[in-house]
């Protein structure tokens, strides 16, 4: 199957997970958005060499994935996809920052390597949290939650259209790519001219298709507002979820449980 098709199906699969019926799925979307936001802020607030402090934060995605019954291999695959991009961003760290920060036996580990590792860990954590949010809430409901949290409607509608346009773009790109491959007779170099023309056509085709989709949406009563599948009611359980996770993140950030645990172990077994 074409790689683009696979990517589209995978994206749609993420939306399908949001139709689950676990406790996590049932939580108010605003609460999930806020908790994810606190999590991301806590994770990115560490300095560039931090590793130990980040480790306890892996508890959040693990607990959420287990409680929401999300497929781990699927999420792992999605997270691995971003690896090349992160490596590209952090590739020069080991070269530019050669000061020794850790020493394991005779092996010296430079600050650049540690910062690259920290970057990888933080990226996995934050992107994992975002994926879990979408997989347990659905993009439409997330946008509604953002709107109810104060984001102007015009932005949320733009976000939703952008999200839907991605599918249209990917499907049209797949068709264009297949048509090109079928007539390229196995050759790969078709020149920038051909590529430019293909991109132009792709833009026009997606535009026309997006207009057709918009027309069908209008014909089914769309008036500029998206409606989610769930009707949100803020409950005590939602409040508990919000407070417990927020306090946990705050404690993890300020008290550094990994260091405490290390001190405890070294204290108990000197």
């Amino acid at each position: 199957m074409n790689a683009i098709t696979t990517a589209v199906i995978d994206l749609k699969q993420l939306e399908l997970f949001a139709q689950g019926d676990t406790q996590v799925h049932g939580r108010d979307a605003r609460v999930k958005v806020l908790v994810t936001l606190f999590f991301i802020l806590s994770v990115i607030s560490y300095h560039r060499y931090e590793i130990n402090g980040l480790l306890p934060f892996t508890l959040f995605p693990i607990i959420m994935v287990c409680r929401a019954e999300l497929p781990i291999p699927y999420l792992a695959r999605k997270m691995l996809l971003i690896c090349p991009f992160i490596l590209l961003i952090g590739a020069f760290n080991p070269l530019l920052d050669r000061s020794t920060l850790w020493q394991v036996g005779s092996i010296e580990i430079s600050g650049g390597c540690i910062s690259l590792l920290s970057l990888l860990l933080r990226s996995f954590l934050t992107i994992g949290a975002a994926l879990i949010l979408v997989a347990t809430t659905g993009f439409t409901t997330i946008c509604q939650a953002l709107e109810r949290l104060g984001m102007p409607e015009v932005f949320t509608v733009q976000l939703l259209f952008l999200h839907r346009y991605l599918f249209v773009l990917a499907e049209e790109a797949e068709r264009a790519s297949r048509a090109r491959e079928l007539r390229s007779c196995g050759s790969t170099g078709r020149g920038i001219g051909s590529f430019g023309s293909l991109t132009g056509h792709l833009l026009l085709r997606t535009w026309q298709r997006a207009e057709r989709i918009h027309t069908t949406m209008l014909s089914r009563g769309f008036t500029g507002q998206f409606h989610g599948q769930r009707r949100e009611r803020f409950s005590h359980a939602d409040l508990t979820f919000l407070i417990s996770w927020s306090v946990t993140f705050l404690l993890m950030r300020t008290m550094e449980p990994a260091t405490l645990l290390g001190s405890f172990i070294t204290g108990a077994f000197p």
Binding site: E15, L16, F222
Partner: peptide, 22 residues
């Protein structure tokens, strides 16, 4: 063209789009 009309992830979600707009 049904592909112009169907844009949701699942059958149920797509069919509920119109009633939700109401």
């Amino acid at each position: 063209n049904p592909d112009s009309q169907l844009f949701s992830a699942s059958v149920q979600e797509d069919v509920s789009f119109g009633p939700m707009n109401l």
